[in-house]
Nucleic acid binder design. Structure first.
Lengths: 153, 153
DNA sequence: CTTTATGCAAAACGTTTGCATCGAG
DNA sequence: CTCGATGCAAACGTTTTGCATAAAG
């Protein structure tokens, strides 16, 4: 299991390792939540006040292209990023419960063993029928969280 | 199976039925694809040139709150909407294969019978453990489509 | 009549781009 | 040295908001 970025792989693809990129890498590695570009920017500025938001976006794009981060949309009008579970051992594979009322996101990890099997089966079916090569998948459940149900209208 | 909007339900929630809303309803009902707000706007203008884009957004928001439409993000920087499969019989429940290179979206309907069972099981588990009331779910597979694999770099 | 919906213009927002400069390799 | 990376400001495209007017119920 990979626990850190492959600097070698990054360099091979023609990317350079910079102080700014290392900071973004590190923030993602230590985050145990899905961060928005802006949240990463705030955190990064405390370590390097001169860093630009543009650099955050470009670094995230690079990592996304390398397949190191997942990009999510939870309906807030901005993207959230998270290191791929192949990158950090502490980040277990999981899915999300998104509350439609308060936008809270709950990580869901209670997989029935069936799930992996089913997904694997689906991926090979997709490959066979559509010639589509699957890299990642997301499963999201939308609904109303416990708290919002209480203070219901 | 519901095949049209419940005007009664809409009125009960305090919404009014207007010419503009009926047009948007109808466009969604006839669409066999995920439409963006702008695409709906173009279509709507041919029937009512005076209609405003704002109205499209507000109608979509209403339908989303009513749970009549699903809202998707395929990474294009804008949302796409589609009537919920409970609303239109021609719109079968499906998931999406999103090509990371060309952004094409393929509808995926080949469910193994296991899937429904698994999702049902997951939903009741989620309800039990988190008290979260699931309304919809999305499953999306990201990868490279057949065509993009051919013209590979 | 009362209340919600509309259309317009302007604002807001996240994200991207052009460009001169900087720094990694 | 060279080429990619950076930071800034400006541009972009989508979505939202304020407000006066229009229309639904």
């Amino acid at each position: 299991m990979k626990t850190s970025f492959s600097y070698k792989e990054i360099k091979e693809k023609g990317y350079k390792i910079t102080r700014q990129r290392e900071i973004v890498f590190d923030i993602l590695r230590k985050a145990n939540m899905h961060l928005s570009a802006d949240e990463i920017y705030i955190k990064a500025k405390s370590r390097n006040p001169g860093i630009g938001l543009t650099t955050i976006y470009r670094t995230l794009e690079m990592l996304y292209n390398l397949g190191y981060v997942n990009k999510y949309d939870f309906g807030e009008g901005r993207a959230r990023y998270e290191l791929n579970d192949t990158m950090v051992e502490t980040c277990k594979h999981h899915h999300h419960l998104v509350c439609l009322r308060c936008n809270r996101v709950i990580d869901y990890t209670d997989f029935v063993p069936q799930e992996t099997e089913l997904i694997t089966k689906a991926i090979s079916g997709i490959s066979r029928k559509y010639g589509f090569k699957v890299q990642t998948h997301i499963i999201q459940f939308y609904g109303i969280c416990k708290e919002c149900q209480k203070r219901k209208k």
